[in-house]
């Protein structure tokens, strides 16, 4: 591992930097890009003209181009909604919890796995930890429901053993940021920790040998060598996640909460994406297509601004950090 890292220091990146004129090799490389670029153009860029729906009152019989322009009224509808602050707060605060505790949990798991000597054990544990990542939210919601059901859920059966009275978790809004954070970590900790673990595998082992000679213990080693080596990766992943802080995971917030259990949980779990879904379903605005596009556009723009801002900030702290 380590040796490979060293060799890669002189990798393709450094090759023939001076060439200026386009060569046959360049053309060959461009030709390789052609089909993927074309596919992205067709399937991602062509539909983007649809963002104009955000500024229109879409009438099916008039078509996208023929529908009347309504300026910013779709955005206004969203801003003026009485749940606007609730949505923003819930979306950001829940995502914040997921990011912070998600990173802490996966770092701990990665570092402890790294300390584990037996490769077979590591592999087995990793496989099990990653498994939840491949489950759809619908399946996860069944599991959560089986555990939390107020009458016959496993958790309440367990509580009953200790003489604690049954709790209807689906009408306790303040329990849900915790429940959702645990669920989110449960689903993602395996995958995230593998990413960190993989990066740990690349640390130059001579550093550890040196540390051992200096008489450092495992804890000191972790603080001084292991953690610092992970900083760039943590930064990059965090930047990416912050870009999505205005997007809530619909499946988590809608399915796992059983649609906010008939409103009881909205106080803490009603987020932008579930709100849009409900408004669209009930056609509550009469212009649900416009509203959906408007909010989607808003999420994209805010996401981009946040990514650029965090990126700049991280670079200010250390110019080697940052995504681009």
């Amino acid at each position: 591992m380590a040796s490979k890292q060293n060799v890669s220091a002189k990798s393709m990146t450094t090759l023939s930097r001076k060439k200026r004129k386009l060569t046959t090799s360049d053309w060959q490389l461009y030709s390789l890009c052609l089909i993927p670029v074309l596919l992205v153009f067709i399937f991602n860029y062509i539909p983007m003209f649809g963002v104009i729906l955000a500024f229109k009152n879409y009438k099916f019989n008039l078509g996208i181009l023929g529908s009347p322009w309504v300026g910013f009224s779709n955005f206004e509808f969203f801003f003026k909604s009485n749940v606007f602050t609730q949505l923003i707060w819930n979306t950001i605060s829940n995502n914040f919890l997921f990011i912070v505790f998600g990173i802490i949990a996966s770092l701990i798991v990665a570092i402890l796995l790294f300390e584990l000597k037996s490769r077979n054990a590591t592999k087995t544990f990793q496989t099990m930890l990653i498994t939840p990542h491949f489950m759809s939210w619908v399946i996860v919601s069944y599991m959560v429901y089986a555990i939390l059901n107020p009458n016959y859920g496993y958790l309440n059966q367990l509580l009953a053993l200790f003489g604690i009275e049954k709790i209807d978790w689906y009408s306790k809004p303040y329990a849900w940021p915790v429940i959702l954070t645990i669920t989110s970590i449960w689903k993602n900790v395996g995958m995230d920790s593998v990413v960190y673990y993989a990066s740990l595998m690349g640390i130059d082992t001579s550093l550890f040998e040196a540390a051992e000679v200096d008489g450092a213990n495992k804890f000191q080693r972790t603080i001084h060598i292991v953690l610092p080596s992970l900083v760039p990766l943590v930064t990059i992943l965090t930047i990416l996640k912050i870009g999505g802080i205005f997007r809530a995971d619909f499946g988590l917030f809608y399915t796992v909460t059983q649609d906010g259990a008939s409103g009881n949980l909205y106080e803490t779990t009603n987020v932008i994406d579930t709100y849009i879904f409900r408004t669209f379903k009930d056609n509550a605005t009469g212009n649900s297509y416009g509203l959906t596009s408007a909010v989607g556009l808003l999420q994209s723009v805010v996401g981009m601004i946040l990514v650029i801002a965090t990126n700049a900030l991280s670079k200010k702290v250390d110019k080697d950090l940052g995504l681009f």
Partner: peptide
């Protein structure tokens, strides 16, 4: 970051 949304994609 940006996508066209459901209807334009469906149209295409």
């Amino acid at each position: 970051l940006f996508n066209g949304g459901l209807v334009p994609t469906y149209l295409l």
